[in-house]
Design a protein around this nucleic acid. Sequence first.
DNA 1: CAAGATTGAAACTTCAATCTTT
DNA 2: AAAGATTGAAGTTTCAATCTTG
Lengths: 160, 160
Amino acid sequence: MAGDACPYVIGDDGLGRWSPVHADAWIGLLDAHKRLTRALEGELEARHGLTLSSLELLGRLAAAPHRERRISDLAAGTGLSLSRVSRVAATLEGRGLLVRRSVAEDSRGVRACLTDAGLQLTRAAQATHAAGVQRLFFDRLTPTQLATLAEVFGTERARR
Amino acid sequence: MAGDACPYVIGDDGLGRWSPVHADAWIGLLDAHKRLTRALEGELEARHGLTLSSLELLGRLAAAPHRERRISDLAAGTGLSLSRVSRVAATLEGRGLLVRRSVAEDSRGVRACLTDAGLQLTRAAQATHAAGVQRLFFDRLTPTQLATLAEVFGTERARR
DNA sequence: CAAGATTGAAACTTCAATCTTT
DNA sequence: AAAGATTGAAGTTTCAATCTTG
């Protein structure tokens, strides 16, 4: 807890309140995330018919050796649940963007294999997405701000 | 999994790959948001049976004069859709945390009125939530980092 | 029994009617 | 016709079986 300047106070009306700085940082973070993901997801959906989850999966496949990965590896790598990966993969397979094949050494396993059409769409969607992130996020940061964000959230990535 | 191969960049072709700083800032932001909301929502659900959306609504009611607000005001204030507010309000009414009554001057309108039980639960849940944000977010930031985050995301709040 | 994957049921959210009132 | 609110249908995600294989 904070020592002297307790940023959180239970007011007379029973409401929790933060200092302006704390509110800007926390609520602003939530709002920014909402705005960014909505805009990026909308762009992706409109131009390529993909959700962010789909692109995350496709991107992992495109970067993988042989452009294929086990379902469980995808789940662990993305932080998505196993059932969700299974369902997204089923949808993408229905669109011909990937094919599911069994794993030779372990008959329980299933590997998702990116098709040529899938790779093509993935590249296009990644270009759209990267441009969007640049425009909506990076372009609005000063070099100093960017460095601080990387410092704060970089530890987040190292954790995984 | 291919080291830190990032699913959001174009990848092996060498096109548009982000620097480590950019990747830390953007992907770390997404990961941090996911981790924080999951932890906070889980805590809130386990201890009070509330979602973040529910608490946001209840919090607005607790802060409002007479502890009541119109459905449409709640929607506008929280950024949630009207139908979502309507459904969340129905659930909360079913639990006896609020009551819906008509608006005197405008028979189309409905106001959500916090009950005593609702106020009590709201205060408890807000204390839990605030403590969680403090512990999981603020406590991990230096004053300088906090100031920068407020600077970056504060403009986000001013926009609304 | 444990692990990999899939599926059904349920929760949450949004979109598009729908209904009532202004 | 426009605004406030609700509801039905559909999409997304999670949880809890379920099935198969090790």
